[in-house]
Simulated scan of single mutants.
Amino acid sequence: MTEPPEKLSLIEERLVVDKRPVSDGRLRVSTTTTSVTELAEARLGGEDVEVTRVAVGREVAEAPGIRTEGDVTIVPVMEEILVVEKRLVLAEEIRIRRIATIEDVSIPVELRKQRATIERTEE
Rank of each mutant, 00 (worst) to 15 (best):
T101G: 10
E59N: 12
P76M: 00
G45D: 05
L111P: 05
T117L: 14
L88M: 07
P64S: 02
V54K: 09
E93W: 10
V89C: 02
T68R: 04
R43T: 15
V77W: 04
T33D: 09
E41L: 01
V49K: 02
E59A: 15
G70D: 01
A55S: 12
S106M: 10
A55H: 04
V83P: 03
K113E: 15
V83W: 07
G45L: 09
A61F: 11
E47W: 10
E41Y: 07
I94R: 13
I107T: 14
R58M: 03
Q114K: 15
D48S: 13
V109E: 05
D71W: 01
A116K: 14
E92K: 07
I96M: 13
G46H: 00
V109K: 09
T73S: 00
E50Y: 08
T32V: 15
E110K: 10
V49I: 12
V60N: 00
T52L: 03
S30V: 07
T32E: 13
P64E: 03
E41C: 06
R115N: 11
M78Q: 04
T73E: 03
D104N: 08
A40C: 04
L88G: 04
E50P: 08
R87W: 02
S35L: 12
K86V: 13
T68I: 08
S35D: 15
A116P: 11
E41V: 10
T37M: 06
V72Y: 01
V56L: 05
R98D: 14
R43M: 10
E85M: 06
E41T: 13
I74H: 01
E103D: 11
A42E: 13
V83G: 03
